[in-house]
């Protein structure tokens, strides 16, 4: 394998991997913070791409501004979804409702939500496929290595988002509160905190991450109503493989899937995808809690 090919495959792997990292970090924050397995996460990703299309392509706003506003917009959407759907559902639970039942019901609600958002987008925007002109269309071509600047920008932006998220979760009292709530909401309530708003924030933050993932990849992919469906499948697998509740695991899992898809396809051809699923099954058999998840211990 030539150096140029290797670098290209690596850049591709990191681009796709970092999108999955953002997606799965969002899924994980929502799952641990609010105990909702959000199947509509892919649709939030899709909405992110549409909002990005609106801000950047239709209104010609600055790229970074559009991206930041996309994150905010999806955070708002997430907040409304939580207040409208999941908080309403949670109100019907009694103290005797079992944990598994709550998880199951909210997951089913999210499946319904997934369909509503999907159909809503179709009705609202039609089935027309759209593209976003990349703000950095240049190709860096040096020493025979060709790399798309846009993809590098995506990797960099994802990295920045991950660092900001790390700072939020570890260096602020809000982050500490979120972690405490995901670990044991009752204990936090006993410290006099109204955890409801923490749940809302967790859901909004997770949604914002999905929106950022969709918004940031939109200039590389096309914007279609079906794009959310394709991405949620692998995101759920990454969540399980990386391990619920492990940031390192999520990042490792996302990058691993990116590498497997990129290099696997080059070396093995079409069976690469099959290989990914087999690997997932093997990992789950030997480490049901995921590679680095909390349940792994």
């Amino acid at each position: 394998m030539s150096l140029s090919l290797f670098v290209q495959l690596l850049v591709n792997a990191l681009t796709i991997g970092s999108i999955y990292v953002l997606m799965v970090l969002g899924l994980d924050i929502i799952l641990r913070g609010t105990k909702i397995l959000n199947f509509a996460h892919g649709q939030l990703y899709m909405l992110g791409a549409y909002v990005m299309f609106l801000f950047f392509q239709a209104l010609h706003w600055n790229f970074l501004l559009s991206l930041a506003l996309t994150g905010l917009a999806l955070g708002l959407v997430g907040m409304l979804i939580y207040l409208g759907v999941f908080a309403t559902l949670a109100r019907r639970f009694t103290p005797t409702t079992t944990f598994s039942y709550r998880l199951l019901l909210s997951a089913m609600a999210s499946v319904g939500l997934m369909m509503i958002l999907q159909q809503g987008t179709l009705l609202g925007f039609g089935t027309q496929e759209r593209g976003i002109q990349p703000p950095f269309p240049q190709i860096i071509d040096s020493f025979g290595v060709r790399v798309s600047l846009m993809r590098l920008a995506i990797i960099l932006a994802s990295l920045v988002i991950c660092v900001l998220l790390y700072l939020l979760m570890n260096k602020t009292s809000l982050g500490r509160l979120m972690r405490a709530v995901s670990y044991d909401p009752e204990a936090v309530t006993l410290q006099g905190v109204n955890t409801f708003w923490v749940f809302v924030f967790c859901f909004a933050l997770g949604s914002a991450l999905a929106g950022l993932a969709g918004g940031i990849i939109a200039p590389v992919f096309s914007v279609t109503p079906a794009m959310g469906q394709d991405v949620i499948f692998l995101s759920l697998l990454v969540l399980l493989v990386g391990g619920i509740g492990s940031y390192r695991g999520t990042i490792a899992g996302g990058l691993l899937i990116g590498l497997l898809l990129s290099f696997g396809f080059q070396l093995l051809g079409g069976v690469a995808e099959l290989f990914v699923f087999m690997l997932v099954i093997v990992i789950l058999i030997f480490k049901p809690g995921g590679m680095l998840g909390e349940a792994a211990e």
Binding site: S173, L174, R176, L177, A180, V188, G192, V193
Partner: peptide, 24 residues
Amino acid sequence: TLFMQETVFENVFSGLHRHYREPA
């Protein structure tokens, strides 16, 4: 009910912090 992955000090400090509830 402890936050197992935090230190002893952080466990107590976070509790105090939340008690005073200053905006994040």
